[in-house]
């Protein structure tokens, strides 16, 4: 009655990218590799015409429009693609949701450099004890601002990208700056 459908290239890519994203958010601070470098894969896996997106980096606007997203200000966005984060105020403008609707908290995608910058220690769900790591190329005061925009269970969830590498930082993680 049914023949088994075959996964096309887009499906295969999106599936593998999402596997990496889910793994990264499930294990904050532990890097994971996507099949392709950069935001394009993340957009393909997550974004479509049901999304309201803010793109701080103009280069990301075409692929987001192609995916069908509505471009909005950060305050109205469910996904924020910061590119390289240059505006320290952006974090504070993102939607954090509420205790009633924590799912309204935005997902932020930020480019960073893994293994550089200040040392931090992640503690919380997904972390076996604690994990020490260094994430660089972030504006001054980033970790303080990030702590401010989490009022658990409200808050934003951050995905750091470094080429093909991914690190997840869910709102449930406590970050200690070393």
């Amino acid at each position: 009655m049914l023949t088994t459908p075959v996964a096309d290239a887009a499906e295969t890519r999106a599936n593998a990218t999402y596997e990496a994203i889910l793994w990264a958010f499930s294990r904050p601070g532990m890097p994971r590799r996507m099949p392709h470098s950069g935001e394009a894969g993340v957009i393909e896996a997550l974004i479509d015409r049901e999304c309201a997106v803010h793109a701080a980096d103009p280069l990301l606007i075409p692929p987001l429009l192609q995916a069908g997203a509505r471009l909005v200000e950060p305050e109205a966005a469910d996904h924020v693609f910061a590119g390289r984060l240059t505006d320290p105020a952006l974090l504070g403008r993102c939607r954090a949701g509420s205790a009633l609707y924590p799912d309204d908290g935005a997902t932020l995608v930020i480019r960073a450099r893994f293994g550089q910058g200040a040392g931090v220690r992640f503690v919380g769900p997904g972390v076996d004890g604690g994990v020490k790591l260094r994430i660089g190329d972030l504006p001054e005061g980033f970790w303080r601002d990030r702590a401010r925009c989490v009022r658990y269970p409200a808050g934003v969830d951050i995905l750091f990208l470094d080429g093909e590498g991914l690190i997840g930082l869910p709102r449930s993680t406590t970050v200690e700056v070393m």
Partner: peptide, 13 residues
């Protein structure tokens, strides 16, 4: 399949 990492798992007893 984990990638290059400076992550240093540091289990809390």
């Amino acid at each position: 399949r984990s990638v290059r990492t400076d992550a240093d798992p540091d289990p809390v007893p």
